[in-house]
Design a binder for these strands. Structure first.
Length: 122
RNA sequence: GGAGUUCGCCAGACAGUCGCCGCUUCACUUCGGUGGAGGGGAGGAAAGUCCGGGCUCUACAGGGCAGGGUGCCAGAUAACGUCUGGGCGGCGCGAGCCGACGGAAAGUCCAACAGAGAGUAUACCGCCUAAGUAUCUUCGGAUACCGGUAAGGGUGAAACGGUGCGGUAAGAGCGCACCGCGUGACUGGCAACAGCUCACGGCGAUGGUAAACCCCACCUGGAGCAAGACCAAAUAGGGGGGCAUUUACGCGUGGCCCGCGCGGCCCCCGGGUAGGUCGCUCGAGGUGUGCGGCGACGCACAUCCCAGACGAAUGGCUGUCCAAGACAGAACCCGGCUUACAGGCCGACUUCCGCA
RNA sequence: GGGGAUAUAGCUCAGUUGGAUAGAGCACGGCCCUUCUAAGGCUGUGGUCGAGGGUUCGAAUCCUUCUAUCCCCG
């Protein structure tokens, strides 16, 4: 039985973790509202981190909303993802999306990420 | 019932389910944790960082200068630029609301353009005068210069108290009355201040600015939880105690000058960046009752524990209901101010209309 | 989270302390010069002085509230 929890092991925790992703980007999933950077992490599960700047999303409430919804989608789809470190960077205008739009956006990005990871490994 | 003023409060609710972060407790444990149960988990502004305080380090913050702040009076408070009550001024029929509201006679400063004149004021037009000088003359006088005048016109943001009477050549606080203003008494008030009170001053010390400098009174050292403390790899060298020296110089305490600490000798101790732990939430705390006070608030008793994260929790999905949910997310903590904001509720009051 | 600074013409900046005309360079338009262009000369256009409120007779300037941008502290 697979679990859908979100413990600390599934997060990028330190500045070093983030820097490693930035330095060794092997997968990129660009979109109009977000940019996903990723690299294989050698573990048996993916890890997630966020970069949402104050410049792109002005209000803290909106930054929290974007992060929470994307994180929730990651939590529910974690077993369909390759073992990579994922970095989600928000772009301008993402705070204008509705809740269901964000969910659709996340699902779309996960499938694109899966595809690219498969291509890269072969 | 309409219109309005004011005070306080609320900030979608409930259920299911999948997650996240602390706490309490029980069990297991390879002492790293794992599991069960219980309970808690953003705001009135958490925001801006505009003030004030706690806390920490610097000397348990000391003197002087500079700088900064506050600015009617009294009180509340840990403190404040906040709040309460009062005074004064302004707005409103009113309930009420608004006000950086000390001093311009200590000094510096400003008054562009316009205007005759803008500072111990001024004579452009006008008004008056006909003594003097001059011209004309119908010999009555007329006019120009000189002179008097701040009532009227005009300029300006501002032109030197206002109205009336007297007065005068015409005028003028020149004189008088009333009003305004100033000064000193007296009375009331802790005070700000007030007064159908009394006396004095003719107001010629022009007006404006103190949100220009300034004066007066009071307040104020600096930095900030990335403060600071502790545990601890590599690498570079440091810290504590005692004694001595305080003359010079250097460094630190960061506006400057004092002052203070360090430097020298002896003894002792390994040091502290990555990382980790603490600081970190029980507090000028909430709620209720009673008492004191017009009130802000204070006191007493009872009762409650109510976020504490650290790449950073407080969320996603589904359903039901309604008046269809605004502004918006804690990061050391409080007290204020300011700014943003859908809608709704309780109380008090004002005014208009109708009915009795 | 905390501390600090800036905003003036299309661009880079003066002017702000000490109040009364908003100015310089580059750019742009016109004319001159040249066979033409560049350079040079003459001349002109262009400003809600970041926004709102206040003080004042008068505010880019003084006070205050907001907005935007930038920098520093691990």
């Amino acid at each position: 039985m697979s679990e859908f929890k979100y413990p600390r092991e599934l997060r990028l925790l330190t500045g070093g973790d983030f820097q490693q992703v930035f330095d060794n980007v092997s997968l990129k999933v660009p979109d109009r509202h977000i940019l996903i950077l990723a690299r294989p992490n050698g573990l048996d599960h993916p890890r997630l981190g966020f970069v949402i700047s104050k410049k792109n999303v002005r209000h803290a409430v909106k930054r929290n909303r974007v992060r929470r919804i994307m994180r929730e989608s990651f939590r529910l789809n974690q077993h369909n993802l390759p073992p990579v470190d994922i970095l989600i960077m928000a772009r301008k205008g993402i705070d204008e999306l509705e809740k269901d739009e964000l969910h659709r956006l996340a699902k779309k990005c996960w499938s694109r990420l899966r595809k690219k990871a498969k291509q890269a490994s072969t």
